[in-house]
Simulated assay, not measured.
Amino acid sequence: MTKTEDIKRLLAQYYDGLTTEEEENTLRTYFNGNDIDASLKDESIFFTALQSSECPTPAGMEERLSRQINQWNTLEVTNRRAIRHINLRWIVGIAASLLLLFATGAIVYQNENKSPQTEQDTYTNAKDAYAETSKALMKFSKTLNKGIDATENITNKTRD
């Protein structure tokens, strides 16, 4: 391998954060020297800018970064809570559906297992049934007439 290829490989490792201090010193020595390959001129400017301490950090940068990181953490926590609530709603919905299904099945099962009751007539004699029905209708008619009379009396009193 040529020296240029070694430097390119070291630069790739440096940008990936995989270089050792010795390899970084090799890169510094190469880029601070005079015999830099023409294809690495742009890399030289970038690498030396990264290595120099002349570039000051903008005022308030640390606070802004901290604030942004806190916002991301807050969003992540709220997203987790929302996902947990959604999952809980699904679980509760499924459980309620299953409970309703089992309750319906139990009621249907109980009704099917009951012995059918034969219907019996209240009266065996048709004349007795007729007499009892007439008596009930007469009582209903008298009660209805009392209600109508009371309503008419109230209506007449309000008109006067």
Rank of each mutant, 00 (worst) to 15 (best):
D16A: 08
T19Y: 03
T19F: 02
E22Y: 01
E22T: 06
E22V: 02
E24R: 00
E24V: 02
L27K: 01
R28M: 02
T29D: 07
N32G: 00
I36K: 04
I36C: 06
S39L: 01
S39G: 00
D42L: 07
S44D: 00
F46I: 06
F46W: 06
F46L: 09
F47Q: 05
L50S: 04
Q51N: 03
S52L: 01
G60K: 11
G60A: 08
M61E: 12
L65N: 12
L65D: 09
Q71S: 11
N73C: 12
T74Q: 14
T74I: 10
T78M: 02
T78P: 01
R80N: 08
R81H: 05
A82H: 13
R84F: 01
R84W: 03
H85F: 06
N87C: 08
L88Y: 07
R89V: 09
W90C: 03
W90I: 15
I91S: 10
I91R: 10
V92I: 13
G93T: 15
A95P: 03
L99H: 02
A103H: 04
T104C: 08
G105D: 00
G105K: 09
G105N: 15
A106G: 13
I107T: 15
V108P: 07
V108W: 11
Y109R: 15
N113P: 07
P116W: 08
P116K: 13
Q117W: 04
Q117P: 01
Q120W: 01
Q120L: 07
D121W: 06
Y123N: 14
A126M: 08
K127D: 12
K142W: 02
T143L: 09
N145E: 10
I148S: 07
I148Y: 10
D149V: 14
A150C: 03
A150Q: 13
T151V: 10
E152G: 02
N153C: 03
N153E: 10
T155M: 05
